[in-house]
């Protein structure tokens, strides 16, 4: 039984880590951009950001003043049991979000869409979002928080099979150029592309592809992995760098996730995780111990399974 106090304490620590510490994989990717950037303005911007990450860590202050709309991804091991059950866990995540907003501090971004009511704690109706996944043969719970900006850099479009790969590239370019000008997307970004699923699933997969996969990871389907590489290169050949200034630093990496969709369609979404690509993950074990990391490890062979039954790996099945 995982103690609820451990989950809430870990969730608070994750909120602070996400807001303050740039993940190593993104940092390494941005440094590669800095090494090749020829545009003097774009290079200046990246240099300022690299110094900003250091300042954030030294001062223990949020790296960006727009601390995004904090949200949660929870992965339950199939054998995990949480003290108080999922309702207690949701309360703990909301409580940790509110406390971190006051104590880190984060900007209380969340307001009612119509009445603009502000609780000053990033908690409200349907906020923060909590998404769930499950994992076989495990008794831990993985908590991941993502603090992503909420205004620019994402778009959805219903494409059709006849639009083909060229149609995908075109909509990808539309989104990058549209939101890249003046740097609205806060690039260089981790670009996530969701392909297929229902409309809402397409959006969800694309967002998860940008926020929950680390720079350098590739889709297990070799042809999709090749398309990820190609889209990354295309994005960096627009001629646009940081803040939309002339340059080559647009895409730190591109990740594609797919889901089976209606036979007549090919829905697509594009999401851009920004210069403050804020994510932090912890695994909380049955004894309450927590280990922290920056790779959410959200997409797995299990989560991407395409069959009815989940076949256990041979070695385990033989036991």
């Amino acid at each position: 039984m995982i103690p609820i106090a451990s989950l809430e304490r870990t969730a608070f620590d994750l909120m602070a880590k996400a807001a303050i510490e740039i993940p190593d994989d993104y940092l390494a990717g941005l440094r590669r951009c800095a090494d090749t950037e020829k545009g003097d303005l774009s290079a200046f911007v990246i240099q300022a950001m690299l110094e900003n990450y250091e300042a954030a860590k030294e001062d223990r202050r949020a790296m960006c003043g727009d601390t995004g709309v904090p949200r949660w991804y929870v992965k339950f091991g199939n054998e995990a049991r949480v003290e108080g059950g999922p309702v207690a866990l949701e309360r703990a995540l909301r409580s940790a979000t509110a406390r971190a907003t006051r104590e880190v501090p984060l900007r209380p971004n969340r307001v009612h869409p119509l009445w603009r009511t502000d609780h000053d704690n990033n908690v409200g109706i349907n906020a923060p979002e909590i998404e769930y996944a499950f994992h076989p043969d495990a008794d831990w719970v993985d908590l991941t928080t993502v603090h992503k900006g909420g205004l620019f850099g994402s778009d959805y479009r219903m494409l059709f099979p006849g639009d083909g790969i060229e149609g995908i590239k075109r909509f990808y370019l539309d989104t990058l150029i549209g939101f890249g000008k003046r740097g609205l997307a806060c690039q260089p970004a981790i670009v996530g592309v969701g392909l297929g699923g229902s409309k809402d699933t397409s959006m969800t997969l694309g967002k998860q592809a940008s926020c929950l996969r680390v720079v350098g990871s590739r889709n297990p389907d070799p042809k999709i992995a090749a398309l990820e590489e190609e889209l990354k290169e295309i994005g960096n050949s627009i001629g646009m760098g940081a803040m939309g200034f002339m340059g080559s630093s647009m895409v730190v990496d591109c990740h594609i996730e797919v889901g089976y969709c209606h036979t007549g369609g090919m829905p697509m979404s594009v999401h851009m995780f920004c210069l403050s690509s804020r994510r932090a993950t912890a695994r909380v074990y049955a004894d309450g111990r927590a280990t922290f990391r920056t790779d959410p490890d959200w997409f797995t062979d299990y989560s991407r399974r395409s069959t009815v039954e989940w076949g256990k790996p041979v070695a385990e099945a033989a036991e």
Binding site: A48, N52, D59, C64, G65, C186
Partner: peptide
């Protein structure tokens, strides 16, 4: 004047 980055929030905070 435009901010830089965007998101030199920690530098500005200092």
């Amino acid at each position: 004047l435009t901010t830089v980055g965007y998101g030199t929030g920690a530098l500005l905070g200092r």
